[in-house]
Design a protein around this nucleic acid. Sequence first.
DNA 1: TCTAAACTAGACCAATTGGTTTATTTTTCT
DNA 2: AGAAAAATAAACCAATTGGTCTAGTTTAGA
Lengths: 193, 193
Amino acid sequence: MGYKHNKEDILEVGYQVIRKNGYHHVGINQILKEAGIPKGSFYNFFESKEDFARQVIQYYGEGNRKWLQDIFQKSEETPINTLKSFYKLLIGYNEEDNFCSGCLINNLGNETGRLYDSLAEETKEQFDQWLDIIAEVARKGQEVKEITSSFTPKEIANYLHSGFYGTFFKMKVERSRKDMDTWLEMTFKFIKA
Amino acid sequence: MGYKHNKEDILEVGYQVIRKNGYHHVGINQILKEAGIPKGSFYNFFESKEDFARQVIQYYGEGNRKWLQDIFQKSEETPINTLKSFYKLLIGYNEEDNFCSGCLINNLGNETGRLYDSLAEETKEQFDQWLDIIAEVARKGQEVKEITSSFTPKEIANYLHSGFYGTFFKMKVERSRKDMDTWLEMTFKFIKA
DNA sequence: TCTAAACTAGACCAATTGGTTTATTTTTCT
DNA sequence: AGAAAAATAAACCAATTGGTCTAGTTTAGA
């Protein structure tokens, strides 16, 4: 029947808390309190705060990867519309979240990328795997001449997702989706074949 | 002959330190040590750490605004090339900086935008004033039919600068300018008239 | 069933956090 | 020159930081 706590639950709490508040603003004690575990258990599962954050990134990266694959597989729209609907969905999620969190990967990459090699490495890796999935849709879009072939599928995917990350700055300080909507219209006009 | 310390020097130190390390990772004591001032002087000039950060944003925002105006006024290139050279210059600065810092405004907006209203407000305001200056060059570019007129000058300016911010994530975790260069080529192809 | 490993529990630690206080010195203004 | 204001200086504060330690409990496997 297993022990009282399990790693996944702690990682999920860590994901929620760190995504909202960042890395340095969150203390171990806060995680312990929200997850309802004693310190001994935490340091039994994780070597350090940095190791914990790395595993949170991995946990979220892998979960999101499966979600991406699933959503693209199920889509009945054309490639370019699949992508556009996907970003519209993400914008909607951020709206439900009151525009305060953005994406864990982007947040941690920006806040800690230069400070901790292990976190830079892990964010880079997870992000890159997402890009591969998005790039596959872009490739299909090029195949059916919906998306410009002036750039590689991976370049298109990176342009889309990094560009989307760029909208988080204004989203957070203006607490509105206006700029994200404009970004969506502009970008998808630009990448059309 | 004035007192021993002055606010501007402290703000400059704060700018350098916070840009590199973020808000929550930097303690007051570190600022004091690097600026060579005692705590009493700091709290004589600033109400709190948050107030200090707000003034750092303002100090940097205003300084950079003047720099922008100057660089665009001096440019002898056509509008679209003025903009492209400008972003090429920024990429170069980030390379000299070993790709570790990015932009103070983007960093603080993302890290603290949702947590402290005063910092969200200040970053928003400074960013918006930068955009007005960039938009004026975009407007001239539309006038001479170099830049697409499908969007307003301010929309173009925001698309450029927010998009540029989007490249910081990968810059920091990969510690390379590769993605920034690709972004530059793609974006300026897209906004061409 | 017994043992070793994994997990739970929380008291404890030195170091650091943002901030206050008090006293002294320097400058400015009348 | 004298008083008020501004700035310097650092000791001090409670609260929190990431992390360790020791002791007890639960589980899985031989």
